[in-house]
Structure formats: C-alpha cells, structure tokens
Amino acid sequence: MSCWDTIADYGLRSIGIGERLLPREGYTLCQQFTLIGSGMIWNIYFGVLALCSGFFLATAVALGKASKKPVLQKASAWFIFLFRGSPLFIQFFFAYFLFLSLKPISPIFDPFTSAWLGALIVLFLNTAAYSGEIFYGALQSVPRGDIEAADAYGMSGWSRFKRVTWPTMLRLAWPAYTNEAIFLFHATTLVYFSGFPAWQQRGDALYYASFFADKTFNPFIPYPILAFYFILLTLCIISLFGLINRRLNRHLPQDARAKMKLKLNVIR
C-alpha cells in the first residue's frame, strides 16, 4: 500500500470520510503523518470558530467591565474571574457533565454533549474571558488626547466608539491578542481528554498522536509529528496576525509602529 492510498484512506478520517477502522498494524510514518494531520482539522475548527465568535463577546465584556453601570461592571468582572481563575480542563469536565444532566430534560441538549458543540461553547466563553481582559487593559490605555480630539470634531457615542476608541483599543491589544490566539489553538488539544467522547474515534491531532504512542510504545515519533504540525500552525497564526497588525498600524510612521512582541501567557 503506497503512501497515496494511505492519504486517500485516512486524510479525512477525523471527520468520518474514508476508512472506518484505524490502522491496526504497520503504524508507518506515512500513516502517523496522515492521521495526525487529519486530526488537525478539529484543532483548526475549534480554534477558528471560538476565536471569531469569542472576539465579539470579548469586546462586549471589555466594554462592560469599563462601563459605569455597577450591574454591567460586576457581571463582566465576575465572568472574567470565573473563566480566568479556574483551569480550562475542569471547565470542560464541568460543562460536559452539566450538559449530560440537562439531556433528559429536553432533546434540544443532545448535540451539546458532543464535542463539536459542547467543547466549542466552553472554548468560546473561555477565550472571550481571556481576550476580554486583554481588551479591557487596552481600553484603559487609550490615550486621552485621542478621545478629546474626537470630541473636538463633534463625534460622540457610537461614531466616536467606532472610529476612534475601538480601532485604538485593537491596535494596543493586538500583540497580546496574538498570544491569546496561539494559546487558544494549543488549548484545543485538551478537548478529547476531558470527558467529551471522540465518537467513532474521530478525534483531534493529540488524540491520534496518543493513539499511536499507546499502540507502538514509542513516543518519539507521533509527538514530534504533532509538534511539527503545531509549530507550522503557530507560524501561520503569527504571520496572519502580523498582517492584520500591519493594517491596524498603517497610518503610523514606520518607527512608531507597535512591534509584534510575543510574551508569556502559557496555558489556562
């Protein structure tokens, strides 16, 4: 069996297309590369959707935490504390068992116990809390002069927010937000180790990597393959976010632009 056959059989295995059974012998380099790569589909799915949807909630939470209304302010602060103060691993477990016990109440909750929706919701709320805190910090450091200039131009309310406050906030927050995006993608590997079942062995990259490590008793091949894929993914994220960063800073002179400096934030 050539490597092309393997790719045809297992290239889309993680979303249920191709061979039904996972490989049971051989465990060649080609099989490992293909299956772990096909698992990356789930990591990208979780990461991209959680990041895109979380972005809007994060903005709302940041505005809420900065607002003068005590109800909004307290609610946002508690939301951020709840998701930043506890381990993501425990959040996954709790959410899974919560949805499991809601299941008998109504069939609406059926899809929530599967990873594609249930884990996505947890990741969405989690990244919203982390990026909300980042955006809140950036919102606090929007220069006063910018707001005063906007006032002088007669802008107020929505138009001032849309044209001055929000773009400046994004510009300030962007390097930290890039970090958050990288670690969100890393966090997606936790999904299939935290209660959510991998239905018909359709799992993410780490699920397949640990499958091979368990079968061959040799961790030195699958995990470096996984590392290779993730470093590739991280480089893609950095370059994509770098492009957006360039666009956000396009009006500034060359030397005043915020350099993309990656800082430590690690896991949740």
Binding site: H186, T189, A209, P219, I231, T234
Partner: peptide, 21 residues
Amino acid sequence: AVVRGVPDIAFFLFFVIALDQ
C-alpha cells in the same frame, strides 16, 4: 522556544513515557 510552540499537554503525554523508557 520549543516548549512555547507546542501544546504543553503534548509534552506531558510525551515526557511521562519518554522519561520512563
């Protein structure tokens, strides 16, 4: 650099077997 670029949980799963071996 390597630990930063790769999910830490992958390291956890890797080192436990690798160190034992």
